[in-house]
Write a protein that binds this DNA or RNA. Sequence first.
DNA 1: GGAGAGGGCGTTTTT
DNA 2: CGCCCTCTCC
Length: 705
Amino acid sequence: MSIDFENDLNEAQREAVFATEGPVLVIAGAGSGKTRTIVYRLAHLVETGVDPAQILLLTFTRKAAQEMLSRAESILGRPLTGTSGGTFHSFAYATLRRNAADIGFAGGFTLMDRADSENVCKEVKDELELGKGDRSYPKKSTLLDMITKSRNKELSIEGVLEREAYHLSPYLEDLNAVAAGYARFKRDHALADYDDLLFLLDELLEKNEPLRNQLQTRYRYIMVDEYQDTNLVQARIVRHLAGTRGNVMAVGDDAQSIYAFRGANVANILEFPKIFEGARVIRLERNYRSVQPILDLTNEILKGATTKFDKTLYSELQSDRLPEVVHPLSDQTQARLVVDEIIELGRKYPLHDVAVLFRAGYQSFPLEVALTRVGIDYQKFGGIRFHEAAHIKDVLSYLRLVQNPHDLLAWQRALDHVKGVGPKSVTKIYQAVHARDDKYLGKMFKKHEQLRELFAELDALRGLPPRPAALIERILAFYQPILVERYPDDYPKRQAGLEQLGQIAAGYTDMEQFLGDLSLDGDPDDEQRKENAVVLSTVHSAKGLEWSAVILIDLVEDRFPSRKAMQRAEDLEEERRLMYVACTRARECLKLFVPASVYNRASGLSDPTLPSPFVQELPAGVYERKNESYGGGLRPVTPLRVHAPDSAPSAGSAAPVGDPSKLGFCRHKIFGKGKIIAQPEPNKFKVNFPGFGIKTIVGDYLELL
DNA sequence: GGAGAGGGCGTTTTT
DNA sequence: CGCCCTCTCC
């Protein structure tokens, strides 16, 4: 079977597929067949005799890598044996485990997850007696945020505070102290966090020339997907791996950069041609995913960006239906309307081909309730992960102790279930274990029978061959009574999760691999799309995916864009790109929901909302508006015209300007209330905004008062 | 030193 | 409203 590159690819795609030697940068617009290009390139390499084991494919999620590899296998008609594919983090973890002694972890190390890292921050803060009695002191999650931001952006903590957290500057010294303590704690207990994986790998490659050469020789062809979302250290890793041969292809789209908050640096993609001299730049611009009316709308979103993208997507897929902007009366009725919509769409598409997207995990809760009520199955991506659930972490803590007796975090978790043992005793027990202080331990065993049982269990586990499945099975039996006591309300559900954990363990022979995979990419439910389950996802987790129908909810100020992003211009820009990513996921049908009020759990009341600026900005021609009527149904709304009937319609979606000839007061979504002082053009107004001064604004953005 | 009760507070996004 | 942190009592 030979592959039909002529028919299956367009010219630009073919160019990228066949450019196998030397550096290549592929700027791939949304839906432009980026995945297809990578898949065919994999196949082409192997078809021309490259050993699959010489290929390294770095992607944003493990799922993406697996999908690409299996698609390449299917067009090749044979397996890709030995190809390395995965995330930077998983690649780093695997490489570091093989060279643990070289990075100062002779006895191996344990990978921490976010909660572990936060707990260490708190531990260090308490140890240093910082923030005692100060209620407004930065919380552990804030402490960790600053530490990892500083690392990922490779700025001092002072630099991070200056740029984006000025309000924390009084705590600069404390933050530095916590950061230092945090680093020391990790060393002392053979722990590594997500950031360490990247930095340790970079360091290892920098220092260990033989290893670097070995990897460069092994990986003759490197492909990196989603390059716009790599950070500085990831770019250095790519450089180390590519070496002088530089057979590296980076694929990405600067308009879809949505991970700056964790240090992603668009400069990586923009400067790729400078770093890899002689790089070929190939642009994929034709869109194969979406119908033209959807692209008309997404092109408008990009037009509003401060940083201009020379990107106007076009498609040959036509449609006579415009995207819809729906205005429900509240987030509660939004949930009901979305359910109705899903049922309707379910007649046309399989449910797993319909997605509801939102800015933050919690925003789908009302919808989840509504879906459950009518019995529609759903699969949620983003939000709390499998391995983050307390009962899973409980069970894993025993496993971690078998693997790494220095893992204080695991000790804390395991000992937390022993009655009568609190934080202080944990420290003492930990010290006693490592100092072989049997007298102290013996005393404690007498006092706390549960403690004796725990130690007996751990010893038994350490005596077994280190097979994840066998150990988990034993642990589950031991943990059962603890589970029932700790979670009397919902332990059956949690038990199901634990059984699932046992299933996953069955697929592993190596303990470290098992633990690492769980933390790195481990939601077993994500592995495949459930048939007939509608997809609920954060926009971030929807990256790279597509559906026939996409519904976006909660498109109101403070939610999308997030309230936290309203302060700094560059954060708001990232929200805009996020909105762009969300809308470009849709193939045929796109619906944007803008509830007029949302439930505020602080007050227990419904707060009125302002439509998201990203919706407000859209020109009237690119969508059809529908309002929920008080009676419950949806009614199409004819946009009001600002100008004389013969001019183009351009009324703002939610707050149309009335008669422009009448000067008076108006409201702007950012500048607030202002006085109109002149009308230099039919649709332009000079407005004096208290506190902001005189601005000239297009009428569409003003609401007349 | 641990466990339970009251009070402030505030929901991004992820490997 | 629910979480997390702190304070107080045993």
